[in-house]
Lab assay of single mutants.
Amino acid sequence: GVRVRALYDYDGQEQDELSFKAGDELTKLGEEDEQGWCRGRLDSGQLGLYPANYVEAI
């Protein structure tokens, strides 16, 4: 996976979405899909989806 850092807070709206705060680091686990979602893993171990444009590569 690729380490990325959140640029903005994001509150997951669905069960399969991650929630994070600006500045949090997570691991991107795949390329974004056509809707702009990426699969990732928080350092807590939680897996889920997040909007790709909310993070930057570290």
Rank of each mutant, 00 (worst) to 15 (best):
G12F: 01
E31H: 08
A57H: 12
D43E: 12
L18I: 11
Y50G: 00
D43C: 07
D9T: 12
Q46D: 08
S44N: 15
K21G: 06
E17I: 12
A6K: 01
G12K: 15
D16K: 11
I58A: 14
D24I: 05
A57T: 10
V55E: 02
N53G: 06
S44I: 03
R5W: 04
A6W: 00
Q46V: 11
S44Y: 03
L26N: 02
I58T: 07
L47A: 13
Y54Q: 12
Q15P: 13
W37P: 02
D9H: 04
V55A: 12
Y10L: 07
G48E: 00
N53K: 09
R3V: 04
Q13R: 14
Y8W: 07
S19A: 09
S44V: 03
E25S: 07
V55H: 01
S19L: 02
A6R: 00
N53H: 09
Y50S: 02
L18V: 04
E31C: 13
R41A: 14
A52Q: 07
L7W: 02
D33F: 06
D9W: 00
G30K: 07
L49Q: 15
E14W: 08
G1S: 10
Y50P: 00
V4I: 08
L26R: 01
Q35C: 09
D24Y: 04
G12A: 12
R5C: 13
W37T: 05
D9C: 06
W37E: 03
A22M: 10
R3I: 04
D16I: 09
D33E: 15
G45S: 03
W37C: 09
G40S: 00
Q46P: 05
G30F: 08
L26I: 08
S44T: 13
K28D: 06
T27Q: 10
G12S: 12
E25Q: 14
A22N: 05
G45C: 02
C38V: 11
E14N: 08
E34P: 12
K21S: 09
A57K: 06
L42A: 10
G30R: 08
T27W: 09
Q46H: 13
L26Q: 02
E25V: 14
Y50R: 01
A57Q: 11
C38A: 14
G40V: 01
L42E: 01
E25H: 11
R41F: 05
Q35F: 13
L18D: 03
G23M: 09
E14L: 13
L26K: 01
G48V: 01
D11Y: 09
G23P: 00
G1V: 10
G48N: 00
E34T: 09
D16H: 07
P51Y: 03
A52L: 04
R39F: 13
C38G: 06
L42N: 08
S44Q: 09
G40A: 07
A52C: 15
E32D: 14
V4T: 01
E25L: 11
R3E: 01
Q13H: 13
E56K: 08
A22V: 13
Y54A: 09
E34M: 15
E34A: 14
G48R: 01
Q13D: 06
Y54P: 01
E14F: 09
A57M: 15
A57V: 14
Q46T: 14
Q13K: 11
E25W: 14
R3M: 06
G45D: 06
E17Q: 15
G12R: 08
Q15Y: 07
R5K: 12
G45Q: 04
D9N: 08
G23I: 02
D43A: 12
P51V: 03
L49I: 11
G36M: 05
K21R: 12
T27N: 13
Y50L: 14
G23A: 05
L47M: 14
S44K: 07
R5H: 08
G40I: 01
L29V: 14
I58P: 06
R3C: 03
G12M: 08
L29A: 05
L42S: 11
R3D: 01
A52E: 09
G23E: 05
G45L: 03
C38F: 02
Q13G: 09
L18Y: 01
E56I: 06
G30M: 09
R39C: 12
G23Q: 04
Q46G: 08
A22P: 02
E14T: 10
G36I: 00
F20Q: 00
E34N: 15
G30V: 09
K21T: 08
S19D: 05
R5L: 09
E31T: 12
G36T: 03
Q13E: 13
E14H: 15
F20M: 04
G36L: 04
E14A: 13
R41P: 01
E31G: 11
K21L: 10
D33P: 08
E32H: 15
E32P: 13
R5V: 10
R39D: 04
D24Q: 15
L29C: 12
L29Y: 13
A22I: 09
E17Y: 11
E17H: 14
N53M: 15
V4F: 14
R5M: 09
G48Y: 00
V2K: 06
